[in-house]
Structures are given as structure tokens and as C-alpha cells.
Design a protein around this nucleic acid. Structure first.
Lengths: 147, 147
DNA sequence: ATATCAATATTGACATGTCAATCAGGGAGG
DNA sequence: CCTCCCTGATTGACATGTCAATATTGATAT
């Protein structure tokens, strides 16, 4: 196999830098709604779940977090009234995480400006052809990493 | 302007997820050399600097970190013997950050496996055509964000 | 039944990041 | 020379992430 070229390395660094900048911009916008990107990810997963609630480990799996990280974060979100945890009916070890009305409300209020920010900083920059190419690249990387 | 389509949103989420996975994989590999991705970034910037040393704020600017974050991290790296700070000759407020022999050695030892990991997880997955497309996309996003 | 092992969730200790002070030293205008 | 303000860098308090226990329950085999 050939070695990694400096051009490939530059592309890699550009990918890290660019996605960093995007995360930062989107995070700063979300903060105006009083949410961190992590908060939003948790609320989104709950919103998209059947019955607006999930077992704790199922939630961790969907957003791909370590369970202890989720546990700490849920503790903080619970203190803020965004979610609540109660015991699971079918497994007494388990916890079920649910949106509170407050959490659902904050999420609804945060989503339109957040979506606009994604459009502004990301989607508006790219042509349809570039979107196709990016989809293809991400699918390829995903398959490559999964295997 | 039209709204963000769900396909665009899916691409955005895929971009976040994929780069997350890549960061994780590369970070795990680096850890085998006893370095975090942040450590590596700092050492790399110093290695690439003229004279293997940089003013603290210049370093912060090059890797795009907040100054206080860098200050904390340099404290930890200094305790580990990877870098050292001394006073600046031309500005008595300033600090100059330099690689130690130990730091340079650890960096040299960590780089080949790290480069191989970038190749394995990233570069090997993509065709030359995909690289061209990705470069184009990243340049476009960079210009878009800068303005 | 019960002994054993796996899974669920949390906790505590510690590493790292952010934000708002703080402190010391430059540098321009009086 | 001396205010006044700006910059360079650090610090401390606190938010968040990781890792290694822990406690509790479920599931399985005998």
C-alpha cells in the first residue's frame, strides 16, 4: 500500500476544522434557546421516539453515548425540568426517560431557529450536486467504518 | 428561500455522526501512544512552528483554541514533561511554549501509527474522485463560513 | 430453589472545557 | 512621567466527559 499523501492529510485536517467550525456555530445558536447541542440531541431522540419516551440504554444507543455520560447528563436535565425518569414496568432494573411538557416546549421553541442555522451555515452553501457527492462520501465512510 | 429539506437534514446528521466516529477511532488509536487528540494537536503545531516554539497566543490562534483552555492544557502537558514554558525576551507579559526532547520524541513515535490510522479509517475508503469532491465541498463550506 | 453470570443504571473520582475575573505589562496621549 | 486603556496569560469556579466500581435485577443451568 502507498503512503498517505500530504494532500490527503490536508483534506483530513480540513474536514476536522470545518466540522469543528460548524459545530461551534450551531452550538452558539442553540445556546440562544438555552440548550446545549447535547441537550438538543437528547430531546430530539425522545421526541422522535414512540410515546415520547425511551429506556435509558435504548436512548444511549440511539445517540451513541456511553451510559454513564447519559446518566450524568440526564441528572442535570432532570434538575432543569426538561426530562423526568421513572421506573420501568417490565424490568425493575430499568429506567424510562420521558420528555416533560417543559422539555417538549423548549424543544419546539428551539427547533425552528436551529433548523434555520443548519440551513444558513451548511445547506445554503452547497449545490445539489455537492449534496449528492457528500451523501455518497458519507455513505462510503459509514460502510467502511462499520465493517 | 425554501425550507431545509429532510434529505438535507439527514445529510447534516450523517456528517456529524460520521466525523464523530472518525474522531473516536483516531482518538482511540492515539491513546496507544499515550496522547489525546488535543495533545497531538498541540505537539503538531509546535513541531511545525519555526524554531519548534511559539508564543502562547500564537499557538492558541493556530489551533483555534480559547486561551484559557490552552493555558490549562499546557499546564497538564508541562507536568507530564511534554512541553515547557519560559518567559518571552521581547514582551515580559508573554510566554513562549517549546517542545521538550521528551515531547518531540513522543510526537515522533506517535505519528506513524496515527498517520496509518488516518489512512485506514479515512483515506483508504475514498476514491480519488471522492477526494476531489470532498476538497471542493470543504473549500466551499470554509469560504461560506468565513464570510 | 439457588448459584452464577449478564445486563441496567448509577455513582465517585478525576480529566477536560468554558466563562468570568484577575494580574501584570505594553503603549498612546496628556 | 503618569494616567488610562488594551493585550497576554493565568486562575478559579463550575459544567461536562471518561473510566472504573457499585448495587440491583434478570436469566440460565443444574
Amino acid at each position: 500500500m502507498e503512503r498517505l499523501t500530504s494532500k490527503q492529510l490536508a483534506t483530513w485536517r480540513a474536514l476536522l476544522d470545518t466540522t469543528n467550525d460548524l459545530r461551534r456555530a450551531l452550538g452558539a445558536q442553540l445556546q440562544e434557546s438555552g440548550l446545549s447541542p447535547n441537550d438538543y440531541q437528547v430531546l430530539l431522540a425522545l421526541k422522535e421516539a414512540e410515546g415520547k419516551q425511551l429506556r435509558s440504554s435504548e436512548l444511549a444507543a440511539r445517540i451513541d453515548w456511553e451510559r454513564s455520560r447519559l446518566s450524568h447528563h440526564l441528572g442535570r436535565m432532570e434538575r432543569r425540568g426538561l426530562i423526568r425518569r421513572h421506573d420501568c414496568a417490565t424490568d425493575s432494573r430499568g429506567a424510562v426517560v420521558a420528555l416533560t411538557d417543559e422539555g417538549a416546549h423548549v424543544f419546539r421553541r428551539a427547533t425552528p431557529p436551529h433548523t434555520r442555522a443548519i440551513k444558513k451555515h451548511f445547506a445554503d452553501a452547497l449545490t445539489p450536486r455537492q449534496f449528492e457527492a457528500l451523501d455518497d462520501i458519507l455513505r462510503t465512510l459509514g460502510r467502511h467504518g462499520a465493517s
